[in-house]
Nucleic acid binder design. Structure first.
Length: 649
RNA sequence: GCCGAUGUAGCUCAGGGGUAGAGCGUUUCCUUGGUAAGGAAGAGGUCAUGAGUUCAAAUCUCAUCAUCGGCUCCA
């Protein structure tokens, strides 16, 4: 007798050992058709794997992350099977499920290469194999047998993986003529896979190391119903329309020029205006939190970065030193603002009474990113950080850290960013030489972040090896239109730079003490933040950020003058003239795609001119009626303030 | 930096060894009176750059540059 506890707490009893599929059948035939995987005592299992003891289970369908995962993992095997059939002798790397589908790394025999055209052929073969409804069978195998098996196939990537596994933990999965080393779990059979799209081809280093051979990575996504695939493809099309590079071009926010150089964005008037609005918003918030603005130069003496340790770490892979006519004089484009701010702190003796000191700067920095890594505004070579450095005592650290989290919350709330992840980035414990500073300092800094995040009730994930080389971080990540994750806000605790710069303050005991430093940038960089903001809002910014809030439309040229008067009175508008006036044109024309993003249109004509009013239309909402210019002014002001008041309160 | 793809008008793209195409935009003219418009005509291109093959190259080859999708990286 086996007792199976379901998620709702109810218990189902079975005479003999059962598997997930049988449990599902016992609940409902429909569930049995839809179920894809099972969690047994918190561990993901195949549906066909036999449960021999009492257990607590959860059945996973397509709607669950776990269900999708098993589905796509099996799809990766199906892909490999198709490739092995079509290209015999192919060697296989790894083929996992990912957030949005799956991939398989392959090494084609000889010098063969895949092209996009061949993906269709592979898709067809996959569908053909799926229709055979081959069972996916799990088997345990000894390490030696596994090594022999893949040795025989000549799959040296697999044997490399196996040799690192412990004996007794090795499982194989087989479907049709294809066998793969795999931990599972998998679908009961390949027939559940109904719709297949191989989305892209890419190169990827074996085991992620530049030193290894580059394999061909085939990306794909599959679905249990054809309709879901159609929906997915439509969604991706929609997402592409929100791409910040596309909208940025359409709205004249920013541009790039080959002449200026790759990865160096040029902000156009409207983009600059949008940036300014964001900056002044953050400045206002920061002022409330006791920050002071500072300004530092764009270059600094190389010695400054030698002191900070950045030169040793990045000097060789970075923009090279700038020489001057003076022999031996070397400068560097500033890759970060911290050393400059440290020097400001150091410029005079500090008392514990001065702390915490909070220096903020919209500091433009330059980093030589690898050419292949540049991406629109999200990854560039020159960008402006909304940077600040806080110098505080050990007692103040946690409180200061928490206040920075508050600032980030204020910003995310103002811009309606709900879907973010908070990631605690710690040092890789197995690779400590990559970081500077003592173990003691690292441990203090790491625990400060962990405690402060916990006390703020943040839902965090912890990543080892993601820390900056001088300290651990709390990063806020947001996804772009097509699901790529980007780091925006970041808060870092640093015990090391204060030591390297020998920063000091006089404590209440009249002794010298070392302050602790917090680096923080709630936007991350203006460039990346604007990019994510564009994709988040699809270019329809909140009113308080809209580069052009109002357009005035005179009904005929006769009212151009009145339109101009209205514009002067409102002082926030761009005017579009309807008629190509023979005498003069008011303002500049606005292209239609821009027009669609401007929230308010004011129509003026005879009636309005007579009574000093405007007819108001709100984009997407239609007629708002006629109101006097003064009323409209009050109206739009309150619209903006309503959006912001929630934020400041 | 690495693997793969792409580069033709301001934008989106078609074409392709024999003097360059469309739609949208733009310009000019006309029409339009409650409206996020309509019509006509014109202007716009060293077909990314440089070499090579050829009687002839935008088209084929090679190199370079840039962009896109990934990998590695991300102070």
């Amino acid at each position: 007798m086996i007792n199976i506890t379901l998620p709702d707490g109810s218990v189902k009893s079975f005479e003999n050992a059962v598997n997930g599929l049988e449990i599902a059948k016992a609940i409902s035939p429909r569930l049995a058709k839809e179920v894809l995987a099972i969690s047994v005592n918190g561990e993901l299992w195949d549906l066909t794997r036999t449960i021999t003891e009492d257990a607590t289970i959860t059945l996973h369908k397509w709607e669950d992350k776990e269900g999708k995962h098993a589905f796509w993992h099996s799809s990766a095997h199906l892909l490999a099977e198709a490739i092995e059939t079509l290209y015999p002798g192919t060697k296989f790397g790894i083929g996992p499920a990912i957030d949005n589908g799956f991939y398989y790394d392959i090494d084609l025999p000889g010098d063969e290469n895949l092209t996009e055209k061949e993906l269709e052929k592979i898709e067809k073969k996959m569908l053909e194999l799926a229709r055979q409804k081959n069972e996916i069978v799990r088997s345990d195998i000894s390490k030696q047998d596994a090594l022999n098996l893949f040795e025989e196939k000549g799959d040296h990537y697999k044997t490399e993986l196996i040799s690192e596994l412990e004996d007794g933990t090795i499982t194989l999965y087989n479907q049709g003529n294809f066998t793969d080393l795999c931990r599972g779990p998998h679908l009961p059979n390949t027939g559940l896979i109904k719709a297949i799209k191989l989305t892209s081809l890419a190169g990827a280093y074996w085991r992620g190391s530049e030193k290894n051979k580059m394999l061909t990575r085939v990306y794909g996504v599959t679905f249990p119903k054809a309709k879901l695939l159609t929906e997915y493809l439509e969604l991706m099309e929609e997402a592409k329309k929100r791409d910040h590079r596309k909208i940025g071009k359409e709205m004249d926010l920013f541009t790039f020029s080959q002449e200026v150089g790759m990865g160096l964005p040029l902000w156009m008037p409207k983009g600059a205006q949008l940036r300014e609005q964001l900056e002044s918003f953050l400045k206002k918030v920061q002022k409330k939190f006791g920050y002071e603005q500072v300004i530092t130069p764009h270059i600094g003496n190389v010695n400054l970065y030698k002191t900070s340790g950045h030169f040793a770490k990045y000097g060789a892979d970075s923009f090279q030193v700038i020489n001057t006519p003076q022999e031996g004089e070397e400068y560097l484009l500033k890759p970060m603002n911290c050393p400059h701010h440290c020097e400001i702190f150091k410029s005079r003796p500090r008392s514990y009474k001065d702390l915490p000191i909070r220096y903020a700067e919209f500091g433009t920095v330059y980093r030589y990113e690898q050419s292949g890594e540049l991406h629109g505004l999200t990854r560039v070579r020159g960008f402006t950080q909304d940077d600040a450095h806080l110098f505080c005592t050990a007692d103040q650290l946690k409180e200061e850290f928490k206040k920075v989290i508050d600032i980030i919350f204020i910003i995310f709330k103002a811009l309606d960013f709900k879907d973010f992840t908070a990631q605690i980035s710690l040092r890789d414990p197995n690779n400590k030489e990559k970081y500077i500073g003592s173990d003691e300092n690292w441990e203090k800094a790491e625990s400060a972040i962990i405690e402060a995040s916990a006390e703020k009730g943040l839902n965090t994930v912890t990543e080892y090896g993601e820390a900056a080389f001088y300290g651990p971080k709390l990063d806020f990540m947001i996804k772009d239109a097509v699901g790529r994750s980007w780091q925006l806000g970041t808060i870092q605790v640093d015990y090391n730079l204060p030591e390297r710069f020998e920063l000091e303050y006089i404590g209440s005991d009249n002794q010298k003490h070392r302050p602790i430093m917090i680096h923080r940038a709630p936007f991350g960089s203006m460039e990346r933040f604007v990019a994510v903001l564009i994709e988040h809002t699809a270019g329809k910014f909140p009113l308080w950020l809209t580069p052009e809030q109002v357009v005035i439309l005179p009904i005929s040229e006769k009212y151009n003058e009145y339109a101009q008067n209205v514009s002067n009175l409102l002082n926030i508008c761009d005017i579009r003239s309807v008629v190509d006036d023979r005498n003069e044109k008011i303002g500049r024309k606005i292209r239609d795609n821009e027009l669609k993003r401007i929230p308010y249109m004011l129509i003026v004509g005879e009636k309005e001119a007579a009574e000093n009013s405007v007819s108001v239309r709100r984009q997407g909402e239609g007629d708002k009626g006629t109101m006097t210019i003064e009323d409209f002014k009050t109206f739009i002001k309150s619209e903006v303030e309503n959006q912001l008041s929630e934020v400041y309160n």
